[in-house]
Lab assay of single mutants.
Amino acid sequence: QAPETKIVDKSRVACDGGEGALGHPRVWLQIPEDTGWVECPYCDCKYVLKGSKADAL
């Protein structure tokens, strides 16, 4: 199944896999201003900063 994409309001987000005990260790991710998105290294969930150029795609 394809990784999930989430639109977020802040450039710093936490990801834990979203499945409680079945998820992964919580990691904090920083969305770079130049790209407007970041992917979780564990679950490949893509976080897109709302209003960024990546959000316009």
Score class of each variant (00 low, 15 high):
residue 1 Q to Y: 13
residue 1 Q to N: 12
residue 1 Q to S: 12
residue 1 Q to V: 13
residue 1 Q to M: 15
residue 1 Q to I: 12
residue 2 A to K: 13
residue 2 A to T: 10
residue 2 A to P: 13
residue 2 A to Q: 13
residue 2 A to W: 12
residue 2 A to V: 10
residue 2 A to S: 11
residue 3 P to T: 11
residue 3 P to M: 13
residue 3 P to V: 11
residue 3 P to G: 11
residue 3 P to S: 12
residue 3 P to Q: 13
residue 4 E to I: 15
residue 4 E to C: 15
residue 4 E to W: 14
residue 4 E to A: 14
residue 4 E to V: 14
residue 4 E to H: 15
residue 4 E to N: 15
residue 5 T to H: 11
residue 5 T to C: 15
residue 5 T to L: 11
residue 5 T to P: 12
residue 5 T to R: 07
residue 5 T to Q: 10
residue 6 K to P: 01
residue 6 K to S: 07
residue 6 K to W: 02
residue 6 K to C: 07
residue 6 K to A: 02
residue 6 K to F: 04
residue 6 K to L: 08
residue 7 I to C: 05
residue 7 I to R: 07
residue 7 I to V: 10
residue 7 I to G: 01
residue 7 I to Y: 10
residue 7 I to W: 03
residue 7 I to Q: 02
residue 7 I to H: 06
residue 7 I to M: 08
residue 7 I to L: 10
residue 7 I to T: 06
residue 8 V to I: 07
residue 8 V to T: 07
residue 8 V to W: 00
residue 8 V to L: 01
residue 8 V to H: 02
residue 9 D to E: 12
residue 9 D to L: 11
residue 9 D to W: 00
residue 9 D to A: 08
residue 9 D to M: 09
residue 9 D to K: 05
residue 9 D to F: 12
residue 10 K to H: 12
residue 10 K to Q: 12
residue 10 K to N: 11
residue 10 K to M: 08
residue 10 K to V: 13
residue 11 S to L: 13
residue 11 S to H: 07
residue 11 S to E: 07
residue 11 S to A: 12
residue 11 S to Y: 07
residue 12 R to M: 10
residue 12 R to V: 13
residue 12 R to G: 04
residue 12 R to Q: 11
residue 12 R to N: 09
residue 12 R to I: 14
residue 12 R to A: 08
residue 12 R to T: 12
residue 13 V to P: 03
residue 13 V to I: 12
residue 13 V to W: 05
residue 13 V to Q: 03
residue 14 A to M: 06
residue 14 A to F: 13
residue 14 A to L: 09
residue 14 A to C: 13
residue 14 A to D: 04
residue 14 A to Q: 07
residue 15 C to D: 00
residue 15 C to Y: 00
residue 15 C to K: 00
residue 15 C to P: 00
residue 15 C to L: 00
residue 15 C to Q: 00
residue 15 C to V: 00
residue 16 D to G: 02
residue 16 D to C: 14
residue 16 D to H: 06
residue 16 D to I: 10
residue 16 D to Q: 09
residue 16 D to T: 12
residue 16 D to M: 07
residue 16 D to N: 04
residue 17 G to M: 04
residue 17 G to N: 03
residue 17 G to Y: 05
residue 17 G to C: 08
residue 17 G to P: 04
residue 18 G to P: 13
residue 18 G to N: 06
residue 18 G to S: 06
residue 19 E to W: 07
residue 19 E to F: 07
residue 19 E to S: 11
residue 20 G to S: 05
residue 20 G to K: 03
residue 20 G to I: 02
residue 20 G to H: 05
residue 20 G to T: 04
residue 20 G to C: 07
residue 21 A to N: 10
residue 21 A to L: 09
residue 21 A to R: 09
residue 21 A to F: 06
residue 21 A to I: 10
residue 21 A to K: 09
residue 22 L to I: 05
residue 22 L to A: 11
residue 22 L to R: 14
residue 22 L to F: 11
residue 23 G to D: 02
residue 23 G to R: 15
residue 23 G to F: 06
residue 23 G to K: 14
residue 23 G to T: 08
residue 23 G to L: 08
residue 24 H to L: 02
residue 24 H to F: 05
residue 24 H to A: 05
residue 24 H to R: 02
residue 24 H to C: 01
residue 24 H to M: 02
residue 24 H to P: 03
residue 25 P to G: 05
residue 25 P to Y: 05
residue 25 P to A: 10
residue 25 P to L: 08
residue 25 P to M: 05
residue 25 P to T: 10
residue 25 P to W: 04
residue 26 R to M: 09
residue 26 R to C: 10
residue 26 R to Q: 06
residue 26 R to V: 08
residue 26 R to T: 07
residue 26 R to P: 13
residue 27 V to D: 06
residue 27 V to C: 11
residue 27 V to H: 03
residue 27 V to W: 05
residue 27 V to Y: 06
residue 27 V to T: 04
residue 28 W to F: 06
residue 28 W to Y: 09
residue 28 W to D: 06
residue 28 W to P: 08
residue 28 W to R: 05
residue 28 W to G: 06
residue 28 W to A: 06
residue 28 W to L: 08
residue 29 L to C: 08
residue 29 L to N: 01
residue 29 L to S: 02
residue 29 L to K: 02
residue 29 L to Q: 02
residue 29 L to E: 03
residue 29 L to P: 06
residue 30 Q to K: 05
residue 30 Q to Y: 12
residue 30 Q to F: 13
residue 30 Q to E: 13
residue 30 Q to A: 05
residue 30 Q to L: 12
residue 30 Q to V: 13
residue 30 Q to M: 12
residue 31 I to G: 03
residue 31 I to S: 01
residue 31 I to L: 03
residue 31 I to K: 01
residue 31 I to Q: 01
residue 31 I to M: 01
residue 32 P to Y: 05
residue 32 P to H: 08
residue 32 P to W: 05
residue 32 P to F: 05
residue 32 P to I: 05
residue 32 P to T: 05
residue 32 P to V: 04
residue 32 P to K: 03
residue 33 E to A: 11
residue 33 E to K: 08
residue 33 E to M: 09
residue 34 D to K: 04
residue 34 D to Q: 09
residue 34 D to I: 03
residue 34 D to R: 05
residue 34 D to E: 11
residue 34 D to P: 02
residue 35 T to G: 03
residue 35 T to R: 07
residue 35 T to V: 12
residue 35 T to Q: 09
residue 35 T to S: 07
residue 35 T to F: 05
residue 35 T to D: 05
residue 35 T to N: 02
residue 35 T to A: 07
residue 35 T to W: 06
residue 35 T to I: 13
residue 36 G to C: 01
residue 36 G to Q: 03
residue 36 G to F: 04
residue 36 G to R: 01
residue 36 G to A: 02
residue 36 G to E: 04
residue 36 G to S: 04
residue 36 G to L: 01
residue 36 G to M: 04
residue 37 W to A: 04
residue 37 W to D: 01
residue 37 W to H: 02
residue 37 W to V: 06
residue 38 V to E: 02
residue 38 V to H: 02
residue 38 V to C: 00
residue 38 V to F: 01
residue 38 V to T: 06
residue 38 V to I: 11
residue 38 V to Y: 02
residue 39 E to W: 13
residue 39 E to Q: 14
residue 39 E to G: 09
residue 39 E to H: 09
residue 39 E to Y: 15
residue 40 C to P: 09
residue 40 C to Q: 11
residue 40 C to N: 09
residue 40 C to Y: 11
residue 40 C to L: 10
residue 40 C to R: 09
residue 40 C to H: 11
residue 40 C to G: 10
residue 41 P to R: 02
residue 41 P to K: 04
residue 41 P to G: 02
residue 41 P to I: 06
residue 41 P to Y: 04
residue 41 P to V: 05
residue 41 P to M: 07
residue 41 P to E: 02
residue 41 P to W: 06
residue 42 Y to R: 12
residue 42 Y to N: 06
residue 42 Y to L: 15
residue 42 Y to D: 04
residue 42 Y to T: 05
residue 43 C to F: 01
residue 43 C to R: 00
residue 43 C to S: 01
residue 43 C to L: 01
residue 43 C to T: 01
residue 44 D to L: 15
residue 44 D to Q: 14
residue 44 D to S: 15
residue 44 D to N: 15
residue 44 D to G: 15
residue 44 D to K: 15
residue 44 D to I: 07
residue 44 D to R: 15
residue 44 D to Y: 15
residue 45 C to F: 15
residue 45 C to H: 15
residue 45 C to Y: 15
residue 45 C to G: 15
residue 45 C to W: 15
residue 45 C to I: 15
residue 46 K to A: 00
residue 46 K to C: 14
residue 46 K to L: 08
residue 46 K to H: 07
residue 47 Y to D: 14
residue 47 Y to M: 07
residue 47 Y to L: 12
residue 47 Y to H: 12
residue 47 Y to W: 07
residue 47 Y to R: 04
residue 47 Y to K: 08
residue 47 Y to T: 09
residue 48 V to G: 02
residue 48 V to R: 01
residue 48 V to A: 02
residue 48 V to T: 00
residue 48 V to I: 13
residue 48 V to W: 09
residue 48 V to P: 14
residue 49 L to N: 13
residue 49 L to C: 15
residue 49 L to P: 15
residue 49 L to S: 13
residue 49 L to E: 15
residue 50 K to Y: 01
residue 50 K to I: 10
residue 50 K to A: 12
residue 50 K to Q: 11
residue 50 K to V: 11
residue 50 K to T: 09
residue 51 G to C: 14
residue 51 G to A: 05
residue 51 G to M: 02
residue 51 G to P: 03
residue 51 G to T: 05
residue 51 G to E: 10
residue 51 G to Q: 02
residue 52 S to V: 08
residue 52 S to Q: 02
residue 52 S to C: 14
residue 52 S to E: 09
residue 53 K to W: 11
residue 53 K to M: 11
residue 53 K to G: 12
residue 54 A to N: 05
residue 54 A to D: 08
residue 54 A to Y: 00
residue 54 A to G: 06
residue 54 A to I: 07
residue 54 A to S: 06
residue 54 A to F: 00
residue 55 D to I: 00
residue 55 D to K: 00
residue 55 D to R: 00
residue 55 D to S: 00
residue 55 D to F: 00
residue 55 D to E: 09
residue 56 A to F: 13
residue 56 A to L: 13
residue 56 A to K: 13
residue 56 A to I: 13
residue 56 A to Y: 12
residue 56 A to E: 10
residue 56 A to N: 13
residue 56 A to V: 14
residue 57 L to D: 10
residue 57 L to P: 10
residue 57 L to F: 08
residue 57 L to N: 12
residue 57 L to H: 09
residue 57 L to I: 12
residue 57 L to T: 13
